[in-house]
Write a protein that binds this DNA or RNA. Sequence first.
RNA 1: GGUCCUGUGGCCGAGUGGCUAGGCAAAGCUCUGCAAAAGCUUCUACAGCAGUUCGAAUCUGCUCGGGACCUCCA
Length: 495
Amino acid sequence: MPLKVYNSYTRTKEVFTPITPGHAGMYVCGPTVSGESHLGHARPYITFDFIYRYLTYKGYKVRYVRNITDAGHFEEEGKEAEDKVSKKAILEKLEPMELVQKYTNLFHWAMLQFNCVEPSIEPTATGHIVEQISMIEKIIAEGYAYEVNGSVYFDLKKYAATHEYGKLSGRVMDDLLETTRELDGQQEKRDKADFALWKSAAPEHIMRWKSPWGEGFPGWHIECSAMATKYLGAEFDIHGGGMDLQFPHHESEIAQSTICNHHTPAKYWIHNNMITINGKKMGKSYNNVIKLTEMFSGNHPLLTQAFSPMTVRFFILQSHYRSPVDFSSEALLASEKALKRLWEAYEVLKKLPVGLNEEAADAALNSKVVQWLNEFDEFMDDDFSTAKILANMFELAPVINGIKDGHIAPGALAATTLVLLQQQFKTYMEDIFGLTHSTGADDNTLQGVMQLLIDIRKEAKIRKDYSTSDKIRKQLATIGIELKDEKDGSMSWNK
RNA sequence: GGUCCUGUGGCCGAGUGGCUAGGCAAAGCUCUGCAAAAGCUUCUACAGCAGUUCGAAUCUGCUCGGGACCUCCA
């Protein structure tokens, strides 16, 4: 079954055919490490994480490049050419690179919390100044960029005359000329819409590098083009990022790379939608961000409680990556409970004994189960429809619980079906969706202590000493361990 | 102002022509020392108006509402 992905560039779902058979190259715009990551940032990284995991599952050897933007960009017009990173550094009295390091570490910590697989290469913008400069030189040599007062600009009008500028973001060149607002250095550009490839640095600018045009720093768009080209080649398979980056960032990348490499950079453009809060995009400009640290601690006015990274991850998986998703404490709480239910069913499933029956006693149920399971790959192949797979998992949960409770006869499903059920849940829950759950079962000390408590509680129950048995259960609950009495008289627990 | 997207039951959210999405919440029942969990059952919606069609949440038009981008933004 071929994988189909929605290509923002052509606005259609296309069959994914990699440039090099068996391999897939994917570039995703990474964070600007001038501040702490917030909930909105979580979406692309979790989205491209399951995309990466799925490509791997499909058998592709994937090179996943995600950059760190550690050289800042311009502030508003009117102020001196200031760099976001260096400005903040002065405020916090830190070296720019100290700040960059701090937020990079924090970002990596958050990715670890979300169980995101590390990218194959995580290049930094400051580490690729040389590549960026040589790319700019090539663009100048091609005649599509010009130097003014130590800055270099891309000649958009010339490019648009012979290339499709605006195709990705659905923009018309003439409109851009009309609506582009006044930016710093506007008067030295040939055309208002031209964007900077290299900016001359004002004296107070801390982050600066030598270049053929004087000391300065690279423009915003060139870093991604340079690093993507270096590690993935002139043409690669997938370029990803948030929808809000389509214009001008990705559009400009296409222009630069096309001139420099004589080829449009990415074959498939994949963009995730935004996380909104009360219907508004979560973003710095709206002042409505919930930082990830606040999310995990519950320390924010909009949060009624702390939410674990896995709850957030599940929340994101529950909607399609191209749909906007609205955040609320209520919605997160629903996800938390849903995930718990699913995870418990999965734990039950893992322990379900597989019989030897070749024939399913309940053929109708058996074929339904098989169909639900086969649909996992189908749904994923259809532009990563994670929500539909979860819906199927919730259809399967009562079947799993039913077998355990004895509602459904042990032989209702064929042994092969049960094995498939176990395999698919493991593959999807853990390998593709990247969900994890610490049950404490891997902790031998805890295991021993729990066994002791369970034994004592069992004895108390036999004596009908319910105050003791209730006390054990209640006390454990206060430290986050849930003890359950099973129908057969045994007890189970989880953290 | 321009370009584009969107409006689904109490809440969140799948779904592009015909078949119960799913989750959470709520109600009832079963199980149970109690509890939790689980199981069964109930709740069956597609902003409004008009049109196309044998048939529309799904296509078209209009109206109303929400949003994104056009500027740093995931």
